[in-house]
Design a protein around this nucleic acid. Structure first.
Lengths: 147, 147
DNA sequence: CAAAAGTCTACTAAATCTATATGCTTTGTA
DNA sequence: TACAAAGCATATAGATTTAGTAGACTTTTG
């Protein structure tokens, strides 16, 4: 399960992605639109800023914006930035690897082997999907929904 | 991430699967072989028994065994039994669905849409993989490893 | 200068997960 | 028949993580 942090980050990036090229958007605006606790969102956006994904502008008229085109930001990148391992087992995680304490030899572990496949499938989807893709999916969904 | 409970369950089922058709195996044996806290494993196997997956035999010479052929037990089934939602978002989970509190309309949520795909890919793999498959994967891995 | 907005750190509350403890029941066998 | 082996069941403790809150500070604009 993704953490709320990750979910909120994705939601916020979609908002910022739609606004790419425009004037900065305030945390409080994103927070109220997306029903995210403002103080929590502050921390999250700060993280994303420190990771180089967002720029920020202080003072009146300030806010946040994407540094890169939303098409250049993959969903998997956000999961990793916000601390969410993609893999379902620590011993299978590419970026948050941890040895299984209960495993004698993980190289010959059948369970692990299965979850390597799961990880690969997940990473494939999430690395091929950008924030721009999420936005366009949303557009399609709204079209079909209101039809 | 899968819980320890789920991991231990899978490990134990692999042991029991290898022994399918034989005499019952004791909790303590599985626990020591797989480095699983015995008391914890007791609870887990009890759950699996109550779910109809295992039979148990009390008293001296007792233990646990699989009710069904390991080829008939899918990995996804174990995840679900041991409380591990397969999906990465609650609003996408087939068996542990929960509404996203922050979402106005989940039907038109682009983020959700992406994770539906992830879920489908994961469920496909995990439902097509049985305990017997895990065992045969393990055999192959050992062969290649010792070569 | 005042208000708007982000920055930074610390803390707390709640939930969940992992593990342990305790006492019980059933079964086989000496 | 007594005793030991083994599972059954529930309660509880401890640890970890997550989610959210608080408060004081800095920068920018008007």
């Amino acid at each position: 399960m993704l953490s709320k942090k990750t979910r909120y980050a994705l939601k916020a990036l979609v908002v910022l992605g739609k606004n790419f090229g425009g004037v900065p958007i305030q945390i409080s605006k994103i927070a109220s639109e997306e029903h995210i606790p403002k103080k929590f969102l502050e921390q999250i956006l700060l993280d994303l800023r420190n990771a180089g994904l967002l720029y920020s502008k202080k003072g009146s008229g300030g806010g946040y914006g994407l540094v890169k085109d939303p098409a250049e930001i993959s969903v998997v990148q956000i999961l990793r930035l916000t601390g969410g391992p993609v893999a379902l087992l620590p011993c299978v995680s590419l970026n948050f690897y941890q040895k299984c304490d209960e495993c004698d030899n993980e190289v010959t572990c059948g369970v692990r082997d299965v979850f390597v496949d799961v990880r690969d499938a997940t990473v494939k989807i999430l690395s091929e999907t950008s924030i721009a893709d999420v936005i366009s999916r949303e557009k399609n969904l709204i079209e079909n929904y209101t039809q």
